[in-house]
Design a binder for these strands. Structure first.
Lengths: 350, 350
DNA sequence: ATCGTTTTTGGGAATGTTCCCAAAAAAATA
DNA sequence: TATTTTTTTGGGAACATTCCCAAAAACGAT
């Protein structure tokens, strides 16, 4: 906690400041500041002298001091539960490009699906005074107080993919319901009747929407719903493996599987193969997200594609709308829903 | 540039400070500060009063002010050229876990393989006064002045994967040479003689090391080197596709391919299949990195595995060593070399 | 030369926090 | 009770910057 050692250190490794420049040129810090910030009220000759010395001293402005004074960091935090699969990285890139155009920097936090980490990261981002937040929360998150800390202080928060419901925040989602509906419809139309669904935790809105799409498609085509074919699980591959095996061990096993996401679908594919069964003959499989890997495996995985980069771009745009809104004309909370698209490959028929 | 509007805004959305707390309790900011930082010299009863009010006002400390004063942000920047493939995300997670243990936050920047973006990000990270940097640079980077800005001011920089050579910085690399050697050795031992190599830009040290491993393995087993089989390219999939086709169109096409990385190898596999040829019968293929996808495709891709998380952990440890080193006992620049391991799958034989 | 205008510069406050040193209050001792 | 010791508190400086306002300098016109 004590900073004596650092103070000493600091003295040794002193970074040049505008005061150093001012002193060396016999100017005031105000003038140097003006010269460095392209302010009009400064003599051109003076500016050149300042710029020259700044360059010579390798002066680098201290953003901390500026942020403290102006109360804005021009930094946006992006929080995601993981970034091993292609989805979150691609969303982040989409958002970052949009934010960079507007002159914002991005700090990325990954909670690793841990609620505790998410809370810690949120507190840390708040302490360093990010101007806004883009979030997809963990599957454990039920309490959203750590995000309320932001909204209460007027710091905009935009959710995507996994969104905070019933609240005055903007969101970007995809049409999970229709995506799921079309996936199941496709399975029915290719002759499947016993369609299993590996669903996610029902705390996740998108998981519930996909489940509803699944149920409504069955209902619409008069396919009876067998509760033993609907399994809600924690999205880990270990559990996916166990439940797929469980389904195949049923006295009347399913002839098709609609998985909540592609990793789950791919795990299912591996299980089916390892049991000497064939895809799609013995089990047709559909995933969700259209991970690039889905096109590479054999057979190709039928999957519900979502416009990944656009999700990030939209989230960034919504955030920027809030960021540039003024107190007298605030931006209203908006929900953007992007379309999904079924991509048919070998896993549901030749 | 003008902040009038923001100043007004700020007044409206005033965040509670220790001065607010002090005023309301009739204390000085010093005492409140002590209460909040668990300083011993404060009356227990006073501390409770402060903590209570801080909680009630939803006080959140302003890290900017603290960082400005202490001249340390407890934040580390990590710069990577991309994070769509699994490699960089996994390195980042490894590093982040290690840094979090030591109480450091992480800011992630991805340069998108653009030198200009890398320079901008580096400047921005410097301006916000990160305490250290972990970097894998872009394939375009030849000028390292933007990193010298850090080292010159005594801010530690650790490179990994793509490293800055001949400089006084710490590095984490894998044994690319041996990895490549063993890959090619394996191809020779499984009966291949015309082994092509898709290499990366020779500005990248790891690319050169892999090329040397390839050449030495051929030399050791008296396999003649055919320069027309060695192609250095820019690591884009488009070019990979073109060059693989080019190789297969040769009058004497290769019977094996050692690719600089897994995405290249997978692209090659697609090309071979699309031409109605078979892997490994017509062309054996080896990749580098052991991307998880390599185990999922058909046939499985033989690849040189590297300890990905460990790379991140080691980089973090090296950085922490520099960070905790004092002026009187500085940490010496160190290069850590981690082992590689050949993982044999179907793409080089049954 | 004098006055009015414009351009350029300097001084000081403000941002939120921690640390040092001194002062005040409380507790312990004589 | 008076004195010493310990605990607790307050005041001010420092961090690097920008902005506002006033002062100074330069310029132009009479």
């Amino acid at each position: 906690m004590t900073i004596n050692a650092q103070l000493l250190e600091k003295y040794k490794m002193h970074q040049p400041t505008i005061i150093d420049i001012a002193r060396q040129l016999g100017l005031s810090k105000s003038t140097v500041s003006r010269a460095l910030t392209a302010h009009p009220n400064v003599n051109e000759k003076t500016r050149q002298r300042v710029l020259e010395l700044a360059d010579k001293l390798d002066y680098q402005r201290n953003q901390l001091a500026i942020s403290l004074l102006t109360n804005q960091t021009r930094t946006v935090g992006i929080m995601v539960p993981e970034f091993i699969s292609f989805f979150f990285p691609k969303v982040i890139i989409g958002a970052q490009e949009e934010l960079a155009k507007a002159g914002y920097n991005v700090v990325i936090c990954h909670s690793n699906e841990s609620y505790a980490t998410e809370v810690t990261s949120a507190k840390s981002l708040f302490a360093s005074r990010v101007d806004g937040l883009i979030v997809s929360h963990t599957k454990e998150t039920r309490n959203f107080d750590h995000f309320r800390t932001f909204t209460r202080k007027g710091i905009p928060v935009v959710f995507f993919n996994r969104v905070w419901e019933n609240e005055e925040v903007s969101k970007v989602v995809v049409d999970d319901y229709t995506g799921a509906y079309q996936a199941v419809e496709h399975l029915i139309q290719t002759g499947r009747r016993r369609i299993a669904h590996l669903s996610g935790p029902d705390t996740l809105p998108n998981s519930r929407s996909r489940l509803n799409g699944y149920l409504d498609a069955l209902k619409h085509y008069d396919v009876p719903v067998d509760p033993s074919l609907v399994i809600s699980y924690d999205l880990t591959l270990e559990k996916a493996n166990i439940y797929v095996n469980h389904l195949l061990n049923l006295p009347e096993p399913p002839d098709a599987l609609f998985a909540i996401n592609d990793p789950t679908a791919i795990e299912a594919l591996k299980v089916v193969k390892s049991r000497g069964l064939r895809v799609p003959d013995d089990l047709a499989i559909v995933g969700f997200s259209d991970d690039p890997i889905s096109a590479l495996i054999e057979p190709g995985l039928t999957s519900v594609a979502q416009p990944v980069s656009e999700i990030g771009q939209e989230a960034a745009r919504l955030l920027l709308a809030h960021l540039t809104a003024s107190a007298d004309q605030p931006a209203a909370p908006t929900t953007v829903t992007l379309p999904t698209r079924l991509v048919v490959r070998g896993s549901t028929g030749s």
